[in-house]
Write a protein that binds this DNA or RNA. Structure first.
Length: 271
DNA sequence: ACATTGACCTGGGAGC
DNA sequence: TGCTCCCAGGTCAATG
């Protein structure tokens, strides 16, 4: 489900409700996520305050008094703020109950998500330490991408989805960015020119920024922390638009599989 | 070092 | 209605 814009939307949605709040109680109904939730999470988090919430790629980092809670939403994870005593529904695996009464609830049908505790700096955590650059920062630029594609024979779509190179670009935004940059997703990464890298970097920054502004993309079940869908779905140019007219040239949008993932593009606009 | 594939899960929709 | 099959926003681990 969630790519960088959806995770960032979630971060912004929950922050006002949990910042500077103290955890009163923790409920773990099912610890079996991608990695098990540590069995002493409730003891660890008791009376800790959330000082800050940051994001690294698709990971949310809750800075607590004594360490960090690392949360990944996987494919179907959602965080929401529960204001009243709403009954827990199916797949509500974990919740943090704060002393002011609000609840941060983690729901994840497929359980590909993760909730991990670490006392070391999270950027040193094994899952985070080898991550590539943040796409919206200045160190993601044409020369960096051009350097990274050298001798890489994977397709350019696979390469921009590789978190060791650049974080946060998932299956939706990879197709969208390549359309904006007028580059075929099937091109071998190493065949891109510096100029094409320039266009692609700009396109990735543009599509991610726009998607954050729209509150992310809801295909079927992504919801913001306030329960509303993300509105970027309405602005998708190629994703899930198979056989409909390209919005630039009118030719039908193509849908192929690349590395087992649905990939959408315009055969006429993209070279 | 690089590239490919399977694996982890549940739920929804299509087709019969 | 019910069964089977395929698909889904991620990414790690194993293999060649």
């Amino acid at each position: 489900m969630p790519e960088l814009p959806e995770v960032e939307t979630t971060r912004r949605g929950i922050a006002p409700h949990v910042l500077n709040q103290t955890i009163k109680k923790v409920i773990v109904r099912n610890p079996r996520l991608r990695w098990p939730i540590t069995n002493n999470l409730a003891v660890i988090l008791h009376k800790q305050k959330i000082k800050k919430i940051t994001r690294r790629g698709k990971y949310l980092l809750l800075h607590c008094d004594k360490g960090f809670l690392i949360i990944h939403l996987g494919m179907s994870g959602k965080l929401s703020i529960v204001e009243n005593k709403l009954m827990a529904r199916k797949h509500d695996h974990c919740e943090l109950i704060f002393s002011h009464g609000k609840i941060l609830r983690f729901n994840d049908p497929r359980r590909f998500g993760a909730i991990l505790w670490t006392e070391a700096h999270p950027h040193q955590h094994p899952l985070l330490k080898n991550l590539g650059v943040e796409p919206l920062l200045k160190n993601f630029h044409k020369n960096y991408l051009y350097q990274q594609i050298q001798n890489k024979n994977v397709t350019i779509k696979q390469l921009i989805m590789d978190g060791k190179i650049v974080v946060g670009v998932g299956n939706i935004y990879a197709s969208e960015a390549l359309f904006l940059a007028k580059i075929l997703p099937t091109r071998a990464a190493q065949t891109l020119s510096l100029q094409e890298c320039d266009r692609l970097v700009a396109a990735i920054k543009k599509v991610l920024t726009r998607a954050i502004k729209a509150g992310g993309t809801t295909l079927k079940d992504f919801l913001q922390a306030n329960g509303k869908p993300g509105y970027f779905s309405q602005k998708l140019l190629v994703y899930q638009r198979e056989a409909t007219p390209c919005l630039d040239c009118g030719n039908p949008i193509q849908n192929i599989k690349l590395a087992q993932r649905a990939t959408y593009y315009c055969f006429s606009c993209q070279k």
